[in-house]
Amino acid sequence: MYVAVKGGERAIENAHAWLGEERRGDRDIAELSVAQIREQLKLAVNRVMAEGSLYDADLAALAIKQARGDMIEAIFLIRAYRTTLPRFGGSLPLDTAEMACERRISATFKDLPGGQVLGPTFDYTHRLIDFQLAANGEVAEAPSRETSADPVPHVTGFLNREGLIEEAGEGEDTPPDLTREPLEFPADRSLRLQALTRSDEGFALGMAYSTQRGYGRNHAFVGELRIGEVAVEMEIPELGFAIEIGEITLTECETVNQFTGSKTEPPQFTRGYGLVFGQSERKSISMALVDRALRWEELGEDNVGAPAQDVEFVLSHGDNIQATGFLEHIKLPHYVDFQSELELVRTLRKEVEEARAAADMANQVPEAAE
């Protein structure tokens, strides 16, 4: 037994060494630096920060390098590291109306105050491979960029003036923290939104797509999608007031959904909401669609049995770290379990064969008697 254990340890060490060699790749090619990943693979970095629940571009870039580009593995590394960090306190709620927007669009209002700001987007690009990038061609510099220093009001506020959209709820004073407490059901909206922003982008996208295809009766318009920097403030007890401790880039999406009304509420529009670290448009829109689908009960709507309306199904399967752990553990040794299954199948097959043999014998007895 001792020899087997030592042999297993040596095999694992060799596998780790081989992994490091594969991660480095051809040594005749310059090594990819963390700064290069941070600056040139920003969307991947943003995803790792969002689903890892840690806003640190350098650490996210390092995790991507260590994980050889495996996003879920990088997210796992970030979450594991996050648990080692001390917590000094909580920040004040972010005021996204004060966001310095570099991108702000609305699919519902053409002439919105402040104008449509396209910003850096793939929306209007031709999906053609740019071979100039392979030749390390220089990219033309963009025109001077300006972000509005003035507060930019939310588009839904214009609908709110006429009472055409539900009022945004104030929420709880101190919502539960999913990073410190296990997920429990029933889950209120603040907890659902936390789970959705940490959920796997592909899973959230699939759930959102299902609502658009009729599995949840959720026809939505993008009221507003905005990307920009928001100040983070924290109250310092010794000072007696809040100070700004930094700025973070966020993507915020508010969808506008039709609502036929109820016994207490007139027909109006309702909201779906998504907020994600970095530039993560696909994730924030997906999050807003799923958020709206999960609100069927509080809005007095019918549950049509759609997956996106089942809060336990959505929240229990959206976390890619939990899903990966449960999925990938089956490739680890299960020798004892399989041997028991093997013996069971052999026993069942033996019983079937014996029953068949007995039936054949019974069928042959009358013939012999004649």
Rank of each mutant, 00 (worst) to 15 (best):
A368G: 01
E370N: 09
S286C: 00
V48Y: 07
M99S: 08
Q279Y: 05
W296V: 06
T121N: 11
K283V: 00
A220D: 07
L299K: 08
R226A: 11
G20N: 08
V155K: 08
Q339A: 04
I236M: 07
H219T: 10
G325P: 06
L54F: 09
L225W: 10
A308K: 01
T83N: 05
G202C: 02
V314H: 11
F259Q: 07
I12D: 06
A61E: 08
S53D: 15
L239W: 06
L112C: 04
L250P: 12
M1G: 04
G278H: 10
E184Y: 09
V117K: 14
L205C: 01
Q66R: 13
M287V: 02
L332I: 00
D173T: 10
V290N: 07
I37T: 13
D302K: 12
A323N: 11
N320M: 09
G163K: 07
R271L: 14
E146H: 14
F76N: 13
L225N: 05
R217S: 11
E351Q: 11
E254V: 13
A140C: 02
M361C: 00
L159R: 11
F277V: 00
Y124C: 02
L54W: 11
V230N: 06
L178E: 04
E13T: 05
L59R: 12
I72W: 00
P366R: 04
T83V: 03
